[in-house]
Simulated assay, not measured.
Amino acid sequence: MIIAQVTDTHIGYDPGAGEAEFNYLRCLAVLDAILALPSQPDMLVLSGDLADNGDPDCYARLKSAVERCPFPVYPMAGNHDARGELLRAFPEYADPNGFVQFTAACRGLRVICLDSLEEGRHGGAFCETRAAWLTAELEAHPETPTVLFIHHPPVVAGIDWMDPRPHEDWFRRFHETVAAHRQIVGIRCGHLHRPLHAMVGHIPVSVTPAVAPAVALDLSPLDFDHADARAIVTAEPPFFSLHRWHEGALVTHFQPVGDWPTLARYEDKLVPMMQGLNAERE
Rank of each mutant, 00 (worst) to 15 (best):
P261D: 09
F90C: 06
E176F: 11
A125N: 10
V233K: 15
L37D: 02
L37Q: 09
A157E: 08
A125C: 12
D160F: 03
F22L: 11
V233F: 13
P91V: 00
L270K: 10
P195F: 09
A20C: 07
L148T: 03
T177G: 08
V111T: 15
A180R: 12
D259C: 09
I232M: 13
D57G: 12
C113K: 02
P237L: 04
L219G: 07
A132P: 07
H197A: 15
I187N: 01
T103Q: 15
A77L: 13
N23F: 06
D223G: 09
A231Y: 12
R244A: 06
V111R: 00
E128C: 08
C27W: 14
P96I: 13
H141A: 15
G84V: 04
T9V: 13
N53F: 14
K63L: 09
R121Q: 15
W133N: 01
S116H: 05
V207W: 02
V100F: 01
D32L: 08
V205T: 07
C69S: 13
C106L: 14
A65P: 00
V45K: 01
T144H: 12
P41T: 04
I34M: 13
F22I: 06
R83E: 05
A179R: 12
R265Q: 11
P96E: 15
A279N: 15
P72K: 08
T129H: 13
Y266T: 14
D259I: 10
A131E: 08
P72A: 07
L250C: 05
T103P: 01
W245T: 01
A264D: 06
L277N: 03
